[in-house]
Design a binder for these strands. Structure first.
Ligand SMILES: [Mn+2]
Ligand SMILES: [Mn+2]
Ligand SMILES: [Zn+2]
Ligand SMILES: [Zn+2]
Lengths: 124, 124
DNA sequence: TTATTATTGCAACTTAATCGCAATAATAAT
DNA sequence: ATTATTATTGCGATTAAGTTGCAATAATAA
């Protein structure tokens, strides 16, 4: 499917770019000036994920958060860093720390979703 | 709140003990012989989590999974191990590998939720 | 300018999980 | 053994996140 450039996509990308945190659909919608439907935002975000522009994080609240891929390597494990969720201000950010792990024999790791929960620098 | 011993609690614990995987409420309900209401199972599971008997994992599908704390240390970070979700058979298991991480200055880590996704030993 | 089809808005739907409340039952008190 | 206390349960309603079908709209190609 060929991609088309639309006001919606530009608005969503713009908001994500302006933020140094991962954002939920809800947060993105509130931050955007123009009115965009919930379903559309999800569709656009998932498209960005497919295209490797954005990555999705499932937080420990079970919700989806989205963040711009700033320095994600396009390797086998593109999003190979920890995420941090502040239990005070609830924000989620990408940490520079890479995830290192070891798995038992014959397990194959394709991707991961790793979140540390605690107090961020502003809240501790 | 004092705890009371009930058939429901025994059934839930029994099912979790018999499994070497983490289980969802739904999976637990199907495995139990007697009929127990969904809300009750969730309440019992959350109580077990409070009491440190069970730990909860939020998988990358956003759902809650529960596993017996077999060798969890009762330290500050009780559930300090990786979890593995098989993208073929969908099962989730506790890995022996501990999570090691580093966070920027003045971040305080309280707990974490780290999941590796891939093919388990049976599916790879 | 017209044709193609990706994108959007809307409403309906799905699923997970929680909550209020009255009824039930495990345990303590008598 | 009987009664009192209150933790637990079932039920239904509710919340919330996310998805889907479909017809209308609009970006891009022809
Ligand atoms: Mn990230
Ligand atoms: Mn575990
Ligand atoms: Zn914070
Ligand atoms: Zn498997």
């Amino acid at each position: 499917m060929k991609r088309r450039s639309t006001p919606t996509k530009e608005a969503v990308i713009s908001v994500l770019n302006a933020s140094n945190k991962a954002m939920s659909q809800d947060a993105i919608e509130h931050k955007i000036e123009i009115e965009i439907d919930r379903a559309t935002i999800y569709r656009v975000l998932n498209q960005f994920c497919e295209d490797g522009i954005v990555h999705k994080i499932i937080a420990d609240d079970g919700k989806q958060y989205f963040a711009i891929c700033k320095k994600c390597d396009d390797q086998k494990l593109p999003d190979n860093h920890f995420h941090f969720r502040c239990s005070s201000c609830q924000t989620i950010e990408c940490l520079p720390a890479l995830v290192h792990f070891s798995v038992p024999e014959s397990y194959k790791v394709e991707r991961f979703n790793c979140i540390l929960i605690g107090k961020c620098k502003d809240c501790s």
